Amino acid sequence: MKQKSSDPRQRLLDTATDLFYRQGYHATGINQVLQDAGVARASLYLHFASKEALLEAFLEYRHNYWFDALKSFTEKPSKPKDKILAAFDFLLDINEKESYRGCAFLNILSEITAQDGEALRIIRDHKKDLRAYFSAILNKEKQLVQDHIYLLFESAMVESQLYANQWPVQEARKMVAELL
Protein backbone atom coordinates (compact mmCIF):
# COMPACT_ATOMS: atom_id res chain seq x y z
CA MET A 1 0.00 0.00 0.00
CA LYS A 2 1.24 3.45 -0.89
CA GLN A 3 2.22 5.53 2.13
CA LYS A 4 0.51 8.90 2.44
CA SER A 5 2.67 11.96 2.01
CA SER A 6 3.13 14.35 4.91
CA ASP A 7 2.64 17.25 2.48
CA PRO A 8 -1.06 18.28 2.47
CA ARG A 9 -0.90 19.46 -1.16
CA GLN A 10 0.48 16.11 -2.28
CA ARG A 11 -2.10 14.20 -0.22
CA LEU A 12 -4.87 16.23 -1.84
CA LEU A 13 -3.46 15.59 -5.30
CA ASP A 14 -2.90 11.87 -4.66
CA THR A 15 -6.43 11.50 -3.29
CA ALA A 16 -8.04 13.49 -6.10
CA THR A 17 -6.04 11.50 -8.65
CA ASP A 18 -7.38 8.25 -7.27
CA LEU A 19 -10.97 9.43 -6.83
CA PHE A 20 -11.33 11.40 -10.08
CA TYR A 21 -9.95 8.46 -12.05
CA ARG A 22 -11.94 5.73 -10.29
CA GLN A 23 -15.23 7.56 -9.63
CA GLY A 24 -15.22 10.46 -12.06
CA TYR A 25 -14.93 14.18 -11.52
CA HIS A 26 -18.58 15.03 -10.86
CA ALA A 27 -19.19 11.97 -8.69
CA THR A 28 -16.35 13.01 -6.39
CA GLY A 29 -17.19 15.72 -3.90
CA ILE A 30 -14.70 18.00 -2.21
CA ASN A 31 -15.77 16.68 1.18
CA GLN A 32 -14.78 13.16 0.15
CA VAL A 33 -11.41 14.39 -1.12
CA LEU A 34 -10.80 16.24 2.14
CA GLN A 35 -11.84 13.30 4.29
CA ASP A 36 -9.86 10.70 2.36
CA ALA A 37 -6.78 12.96 2.24
CA GLY A 38 -7.07 13.83 5.91
CA VAL A 39 -6.74 17.52 5.11
CA ALA A 40 -8.70 20.53 6.38
CA ARG A 41 -10.76 22.63 3.97
CA ALA A 42 -8.46 25.62 4.57
CA SER A 43 -5.50 23.56 3.29
CA LEU A 44 -7.39 22.75 0.12
CA TYR A 45 -7.93 26.39 -0.73
CA LEU A 46 -4.39 27.27 0.29
CA HIS A 47 -3.08 24.93 -2.43
CA PHE A 48 -5.91 24.89 -4.98
CA ALA A 49 -8.22 27.82 -5.71
CA SER A 50 -11.16 25.54 -6.54
CA LYS A 51 -12.23 22.01 -7.39
CA GLU A 52 -11.54 22.92 -11.02
CA ALA A 53 -7.95 23.84 -10.12
CA LEU A 54 -7.60 20.46 -8.41
CA LEU A 55 -8.94 18.82 -11.58
CA GLU A 56 -6.36 20.67 -13.67
CA ALA A 57 -3.58 19.58 -11.30
CA PHE A 58 -4.84 15.99 -11.56
CA LEU A 59 -4.77 16.14 -15.37
CA GLU A 60 -1.22 17.54 -15.41
CA TYR A 61 -0.09 14.93 -12.89
CA ARG A 62 -1.75 12.12 -14.87
CA HIS A 63 -0.16 13.38 -18.10
CA ASN A 64 3.32 13.14 -16.60
CA TYR A 65 2.67 9.77 -14.95
CA TRP A 66 1.15 8.29 -18.11
CA PHE A 67 3.88 9.51 -20.46
CA ASP A 68 6.62 8.32 -18.12
CA ALA A 69 5.04 4.86 -18.12
CA LEU A 70 4.59 4.87 -21.91
CA LYS A 71 8.20 5.93 -22.46
CA SER A 72 9.49 3.18 -20.18
CA PHE A 73 7.83 0.66 -22.53
CA THR A 74 8.88 2.30 -25.80
CA GLU A 75 12.44 3.42 -25.08
CA LYS A 76 13.96 -0.08 -24.95
CA PRO A 77 13.29 -1.23 -28.53
CA SER A 78 15.44 0.42 -31.17
CA LYS A 79 13.33 -0.04 -34.33
CA PRO A 80 10.31 2.25 -34.89
CA LYS A 81 7.98 -0.69 -35.51
CA ASP A 82 9.04 -2.34 -32.25
CA LYS A 83 8.63 0.93 -30.36
CA ILE A 84 5.07 1.33 -31.61
CA LEU A 85 4.21 -2.28 -30.84
CA ALA A 86 5.62 -1.69 -27.34
CA ALA A 87 3.16 1.21 -26.99
CA PHE A 88 0.34 -1.28 -27.48
CA ASP A 89 2.01 -3.56 -24.92
CA PHE A 90 1.87 -0.58 -22.58
CA LEU A 91 -1.91 -0.44 -23.10
CA LEU A 92 -2.18 -4.13 -22.26
CA ASP A 93 -0.17 -3.56 -19.10
CA ILE A 94 -2.04 -0.47 -17.92
CA ASN A 95 -5.39 -2.17 -18.58
CA GLU A 96 -4.37 -4.92 -16.16
CA LYS A 97 -2.98 -2.52 -13.56
CA GLU A 98 -5.94 -0.14 -13.70
CA SER A 99 -8.78 -2.63 -14.17
CA TYR A 100 -9.73 -1.36 -17.64
CA ARG A 101 -10.60 2.11 -16.36
CA GLY A 102 -9.43 3.57 -19.66
CA CYS A 103 -8.11 6.96 -20.60
CA ALA A 104 -8.35 9.42 -17.72
CA PHE A 105 -8.43 12.28 -20.23
CA LEU A 106 -11.33 10.92 -22.27
CA ASN A 107 -13.18 9.99 -19.09
CA ILE A 108 -12.89 13.59 -17.84
CA LEU A 109 -13.69 14.94 -21.32
CA SER A 110 -17.08 13.24 -21.09
CA GLU A 111 -17.79 15.18 -17.88
CA ILE A 112 -16.73 18.70 -18.81
CA THR A 113 -18.04 21.39 -21.11
CA ALA A 114 -16.46 24.09 -23.24
CA GLN A 115 -16.64 26.36 -20.19
CA ASP A 116 -13.97 24.20 -18.55
CA GLY A 117 -11.43 25.75 -20.88
CA GLU A 118 -8.23 25.00 -18.99
CA ALA A 119 -9.11 21.34 -18.39
CA LEU A 120 -10.08 21.02 -22.05
CA ARG A 121 -6.75 22.58 -23.09
CA ILE A 122 -4.82 20.09 -20.95
CA ILE A 123 -6.75 17.16 -22.44
CA ARG A 124 -6.14 18.40 -25.99
CA ASP A 125 -2.46 18.98 -25.24
CA HIS A 126 -2.15 15.44 -23.88
CA LYS A 127 -3.60 14.01 -27.09
CA LYS A 128 -1.44 16.31 -29.23
CA ASP A 129 1.63 15.17 -27.28
CA LEU A 130 0.73 11.52 -27.86
CA ARG A 131 0.25 12.10 -31.56
CA ALA A 132 3.55 14.00 -31.76
CA TYR A 133 5.29 11.22 -29.83
CA PHE A 134 4.11 8.62 -32.34
CA SER A 135 5.00 10.92 -35.24
CA ALA A 136 8.53 11.34 -33.92
CA ILE A 137 8.94 7.56 -33.78
CA LEU A 138 7.32 7.09 -37.20
CA ASN A 139 8.97 10.05 -38.92
CA LYS A 140 9.82 7.99 -42.02
CA GLU A 141 6.22 6.82 -42.46
CA LYS A 142 3.55 8.65 -44.44
CA GLN A 143 1.25 10.92 -42.45
CA LEU A 144 -1.68 8.64 -43.29
CA VAL A 145 0.07 5.69 -41.61
CA GLN A 146 0.94 7.82 -38.59
CA ASP A 147 -2.69 8.91 -38.30
CA HIS A 148 -3.95 5.33 -38.61
CA ILE A 149 -1.67 4.16 -35.81
CA TYR A 150 -2.66 7.02 -33.51
CA LEU A 151 -6.36 6.37 -34.15
CA LEU A 152 -5.95 2.62 -33.65
CA PHE A 153 -4.22 3.28 -30.34
CA GLU A 154 -6.96 5.61 -29.16
CA SER A 155 -9.80 3.35 -30.28
CA ALA A 156 -8.15 0.29 -28.73
CA MET A 157 -7.96 2.14 -25.42
CA VAL A 158 -11.66 3.08 -25.53
CA GLU A 159 -12.93 -0.29 -26.71
CA SER A 160 -10.88 -2.21 -24.15
CA GLN A 161 -12.47 -0.05 -21.46
CA LEU A 162 -15.93 -0.64 -22.88
CA TYR A 163 -15.53 -4.42 -22.98
CA ALA A 164 -13.13 -4.72 -20.02
CA ASN A 165 -11.11 -6.96 -22.24
CA GLN A 166 -7.72 -6.99 -23.97
CA TRP A 167 -8.97 -8.11 -27.39
CA PRO A 168 -9.31 -4.57 -28.85
CA VAL A 169 -5.69 -3.79 -27.99
CA GLN A 170 -4.49 -7.16 -29.24
CA GLU A 171 -6.34 -6.76 -32.55
CA ALA A 172 -5.17 -3.16 -33.01
CA ARG A 173 -1.60 -4.30 -32.31
CA LYS A 174 -1.92 -6.92 -35.08
CA MET A 175 -3.23 -4.27 -37.50
CA VAL A 176 -0.33 -1.97 -36.67
CA ALA A 177 2.16 -4.80 -37.21
CA GLU A 178 0.66 -5.27 -40.69
CA LEU A 179 0.66 -1.52 -41.42
CA LEU A 180 4.35 -1.25 -40.57
Rank of each mutant, 00 (worst) to 15 (best):
T74I: 08
R11G: 02
W167N: 04
A132Y: 14
S160N: 00
Q161L: 04
V33H: 01
F105C: 02
W167K: 15
L130D: 00
N95L: 07
T28Q: 03
S5Y: 08
L152A: 04
F20I: 12
R173H: 13
A136K: 15
K79D: 15
N64S: 10
Y61S: 13
K127C: 13
F88G: 07
F20M: 04
V39K: 14
K51P: 11
D68P: 09
E171R: 15
I30N: 00
L144T: 07
E52I: 08
K79C: 15
I84A: 06
N64V: 12
A156R: 01
L92D: 01
G117F: 05
F48V: 03
G102F: 14
C103A: 07
A57Y: 01
T74C: 13
D82Q: 10
A172S: 06
L34R: 05
V39S: 14
Q23C: 08
E96F: 01
K174L: 11
Y133V: 07
E154F: 05
Y45P: 07
E159G: 07
P80K: 01
I112F: 10
Q3D: 03
L59K: 08
L91E: 06
A27F: 14
S110H: 15
D116G: 09
W66R: 14
N64T: 08
L152H: 12
F67T: 04
K127R: 08
I108W: 05
R9N: 03
E60F: 08
F67W: 02
E96A: 13
L152F: 14
A40N: 01
S50F: 04
A42H: 06
R121L: 07
R124W: 02
L130A: 05
D125A: 08
V176T: 09
L151F: 13
A172M: 02
D18A: 01
M175L: 15
E118Y: 05
N31R: 15
Y21I: 09
S72H: 06
D14C: 03
L46S: 10
L179W: 11
K140W: 09
V169A: 01
P168V: 05
Q23L: 15
D116S: 00
K76D: 13
L180N: 02
L54I: 10
D36E: 13
